[in-house]
């Protein structure tokens, strides 16, 4: 009986997630081995270090969660970098109690705009969101004069990003950053939405074959807009958290999140063509990417080597489980 339960639990975690988890263990082992040899300590698996990594992972994880909605629909959102930066900049510029609502409103507006362009005008999402990204960048240059804004994040933004609601006074003390809690809440919400609501079904269905979904009587335009709004909202939320973490907003703050977010979603087993993928995979993919980046920086790998290994790891993992079917007659 218990044996049967075990297989069903294993089966509910799909193969890409398992392989990615295995790779995370490999990274942890490699990092620990490296630290033991060079410094004689196992810093890489100490809880404080891992919690620190989790805190960094939360920002990428939230961006990746939103990106996954869009990728599940068979689209992509390249406007994430400047959605993130724009909401952080406007929020810090407004300040006060309205900072967070304004930042999220930016995400809402951008998401609605993207969604309408893709769902109603039927411009390919890759090119439309690319244009929106350019417009947002232009808007921010116009508003800030091309410099990082002087205003700093409000205390409540800082609290959300770096404060510690959960703190265990054991040993050196274990603090779980609030950003991780935010990530966990969003994750719970998305898992519920994807697996327990009709909207989740519609998202997978639209990503698989939009024409069939439309003919089944589902308003696929609304589903598309919903996906893009979710993505932009997540990006703007990540922008608010990053601004709270670094206590200010700056020009290129979003650029380092786009490609890692796409990589995290895809390494987590979501099909880039849409319609397939589990949210656990995205979380595991995010942690994998963050730990890989951290391992490479701990090893003091020069930027050149980091780029090369980063690219090779993504290709290698996809060669293991991301291959599409061969064409057969």
């Amino acid at each position: 009986m218990s044996g049967m339960q075990k297989t069903s639990v294993l089966r509910s975690i799909d193969r890409p997630t398992l392989i990615a988890c295995g790779f995370i263990l490999v990274i942890l082992a490699a990092g620990t081995l490296y630290m033991l040899i060079t410094q004689g300590t196992a810093t890489f698996i100490e809880p404080t270090y891992l919690l620190q990594q989790l805190k960094i992972a939360a920002f990428l994880g939230i961006v990746a969660a939103g990106m996954m909605m869009v990728i599940l629909l068979g689209h992509i959102d390249l406007s994430v970098p400047w959605t993130l930066a724009a909401s952080a900049m406007l929020a810090t510029a407004v300040g006060g109690p309205w900072a967070i609502p304004i930042g999220l409103a930016v995400g809402l507006v951008v998401g609605l705009f993207n969604g309408v362009g893709v769902a109603y005008l039927r411009v390919p999402s890759m090119i439309f969101t690319l244009g929106v990204n350019a417009v947002l960048r232009g808007l921010m240059v116009m508003l800030t004069g091309g410099f990082a804004p002087q205003s700093s994040a409000t205390p409540i933004m800082k609290w959300f990003a770096a404060g510690q609601l959960i703190y265990l006074p054991v040993g050196d003390g274990f603090g779980l950053s609030n950003s991780v809690l935010v990530w966990a809440l969003i994750s719970a919400g998305i898992v519920f939405m994807l697996t327990r609501t009709s909207m989740g079904r519609y998202i997978y269905a639209t990503g698989n074959r939009e024409a069939a979904t439309y003919l089944s009587g589902i308003n696929t335009k609304f589903v598309l807009i919903f996906g893009f709004v979710m993505c932009s909202l997540c990006a703007s939320l990540a922008g608010l958290l990053v601004a709270g973490y670094t206590s200010k907003a700056f020009q290129a703050m979003g650029d380092t999140y786009l490609l890692p977010a796409i990589a995290a979603v895809v390494v987590g087993g979501t099909n880039i063509l849409g319609g397939q993928g589990k949210y656990t995979g995205t979380v595991v993919g995010t942690i994998l990417i963050v730990l890989l980046q951290s391992l490479l920086s701990v090893m003091q790998m020069p930027e050149a080597g980091r780029q090369i290994i980063y690219g090779l790891v993504i290709i290698a993992m996809l060669l293991v489980y991301g291959r599409s079917n061969a064409m057969r007659t």
Binding site: A263, A304, I308, G311, L312, I315
Partner: peptide
């Protein structure tokens, strides 16, 4: 080769190889 024989989607293949090529470029000219 990776697109045809690896059967991975071009968008993600070239995203990854792009990182590799930039790495080699940085290596050649830091």
């Amino acid at each position: 080769c990776i697109v045809v024989y690896g059967r991975i989607q071009p968008i993600i293949v070239t995203l990854a190889t792009g990182a590799v090529y930039l790495g080699i470029a940085l290596f050649l000219r830091p």
